[in-house]
Amino acid sequence: MKRVVIVAAIVVGVCVSYVLAHLALIEVGREVVVIYEPTPTGGVRKARLWIVDEGPYSWIHPGNANARWWVQHMDANPIVEIYRHGETQRYRATPDPQAHAKVHRLLREKYGVADRWVRFLEGSDTRAGIINGEKCKTVPIRLELVANAP
């Protein structure tokens, strides 16, 4: 019985350590923005995401079910608000599947080991992740800052 308790404690400890390490790699010391995504019910969902920039554009790489719905309905919901650098600004969002490799490269450059960890788990444009055994299928979203967006 004592061995079972010890093994269970070790398993729980490893799981808690994994979760804490994952959160620390994603959140600590790197830029994380808050994006306000439209939802199927007409509401707004706050999502914390990494963001990368190149030239006049920024990109996000959302991966949850709401983001997939949003990408499919982006023509009707192209304007999003993003809280970044202490202020909220409006952006025109456009799916940009051709930028997939570039966005992964920019994420690796900006987020370093944290991005490598996430891609190891979830997959990248070139390798399958260990969680689902597939390459990344998320569509990058190109963001263009808009002045006076409706």
Rank of each mutant, 00 (worst) to 15 (best):
G63W: 05
G63K: 05
A65E: 15
A65K: 13
N66G: 06
A67P: 05
W69P: 03
W70R: 05
W70H: 03
V71P: 00
Q72Y: 01
Q72M: 07
Q72G: 12
Q72I: 04
H73F: 01
M74D: 00
D75G: 06
D75Y: 08
D75V: 05
N77G: 02
N77Y: 01
I79S: 06
I79E: 08
V80R: 03
E81I: 02
I82H: 00
I82E: 00
Y83C: 05
Y83N: 10
H85S: 15
H85V: 13
H85D: 15
H85T: 13
G86I: 05
G86D: 10
G86A: 07
E87P: 08
E87D: 14
E87S: 13
E87L: 09
T88M: 11
T88F: 10
R90T: 15
Y91I: 04
Y91W: 14
Y91S: 00
A93K: 05
A93F: 03
A93L: 04
T94C: 00
P95S: 00
P95C: 04
P97N: 12
P97C: 08
P97T: 08
Q98C: 04
H100V: 13
H100A: 14
H100E: 12
H100T: 15
A101H: 14
A101R: 14
K102P: 08
K102V: 12
V103S: 04
V103H: 07
V103F: 01
H104R: 03
H104M: 11
H104E: 15
R105H: 12
L106A: 04
L107S: 05
E109R: 12
Y111M: 09
Y111L: 14
Y111S: 02
Y111F: 13
V113D: 06
V113N: 08
A114I: 10
D115C: 09
D115W: 15
D115K: 09
R116A: 13
R116V: 09
R116N: 14
W117L: 06
W117S: 11
W117V: 07
R119D: 12
F120H: 15
L121I: 11
L121C: 12
